[in-house]
Amino acid sequence: MGRVEDVIDPVARLVSGGGAVVLSGAGLSTESGIPDYRGPSGVARRHTPMTYQMFVGDPEARRRYWARSHLGWRLMTQAAPNDGHRAVARLQQAGLVSGIITQNVDGLHTAAGGQDVVELHGRLDAVICLGCGDRSTRQELDARLRRVNPDFAGRAAAINPDGDVDLDDAQVAGFRTVDCVTCGGLLKPDVVFFGETVPVGRVRRCFAMVAQARLLLVLGSSLTVLSGRRFVTAAARAGIPVVIVNQGATRGDGLALLRVDAPLGRVLPALADRLAAGAGVTLPG
């Protein structure tokens, strides 16, 4: 990509004015070992992502999902924030980033020290009952699933951005699921599945953040899904500059004031070094 300085110069000039809202996607977490769907590190998967309708309506599909996600969760817990996540947190603590909207469900922005992160599609480490609305942690569910599946021997080599993995039917045969301890209802990860809508209040909060932004900084998202692309569209319509840093083309390129095709793991730390230097920013170790 040439010299990092040449790439970040125009980005730095725009971000240095402050008031930037970050919109991040799966491409920001690839260097944490979580591949994206469509970018250079994307992995081919043999099954399509679970839809909400299939999850609630097909017990066998639900069993397959939980078997795959049970393994995926173990891999997801091993992922740690990378230099890109930490750089975003540094920019925020330096007063240059006013808000973070992420399409990711991995919780890595918060783990890196990000504050008041709006997780558009929820978090994989939380579980909700579709019957009574009771919320619990994924750690609790993991312990219960381990107890009822002591001999489960499925193995997965790679994880998908939603915490799912690829397993064949033979590996999930006999896997047992568990229900809500409060009402016996269906348990679901507190994430937005395909075919499910993002909670209205969460969407409104994101639109409000974008409306008050001086700049929308898109990081690691192809903007293929309308769920995130609508904020780029809203910013452009309001005359708010859009800067996109992503490897590969995005569906928002035509709306961007500046488009940078480069690895986030190189661009963001260099950007933070330049703009947050001397601000006394310290992050969790």
Score class of each variant (00 low, 15 high):
residue 83 D to E: 15
residue 165 V to T: 14
residue 13 R to D: 10
residue 105 V to Y: 05
residue 138 R to P: 01
residue 234 A to I: 13
residue 215 L to H: 05
residue 133 G to L: 00
residue 106 D to R: 00
residue 27 G to Q: 03
residue 177 T to A: 03
residue 199 P to H: 09
residue 227 S to G: 04
residue 181 V to T: 15
residue 188 K to R: 08
residue 148 V to N: 10
residue 245 V to D: 02
residue 115 Q to T: 13
residue 60 E to A: 12
residue 260 V to G: 04
residue 58 D to K: 02
residue 24 S to M: 07
residue 125 D to W: 00
residue 40 P to L: 15
residue 83 D to T: 15
residue 247 Q to H: 00
residue 231 F to H: 14
residue 49 P to M: 06
residue 109 H to T: 08
residue 84 G to R: 01
residue 13 R to S: 11
residue 214 R to G: 13
residue 277 A to F: 14
residue 234 A to Y: 13
residue 94 A to G: 02
residue 125 D to Q: 03
residue 171 Q to I: 09
residue 17 G to V: 00
residue 89 A to W: 00
residue 198 V to A: 06
residue 126 A to N: 08
residue 229 R to C: 11
residue 233 T to E: 15
residue 220 G to K: 04
residue 81 P to H: 12
residue 101 I to S: 03
residue 276 A to S: 04
residue 30 T to S: 10
residue 153 A to R: 15
residue 163 G to Q: 06
residue 179 D to E: 15
residue 138 R to W: 08
residue 151 D to P: 04
residue 82 N to K: 06
residue 240 I to V: 14
residue 284 P to A: 10
residue 190 D to E: 12
residue 219 L to E: 10
residue 107 G to V: 00
residue 34 I to N: 05
residue 101 I to T: 04
residue 241 P to D: 02
residue 58 D to S: 08
residue 270 A to S: 12
residue 1 M to Y: 13
residue 26 A to G: 13
residue 53 Q to R: 05
residue 267 V to C: 11
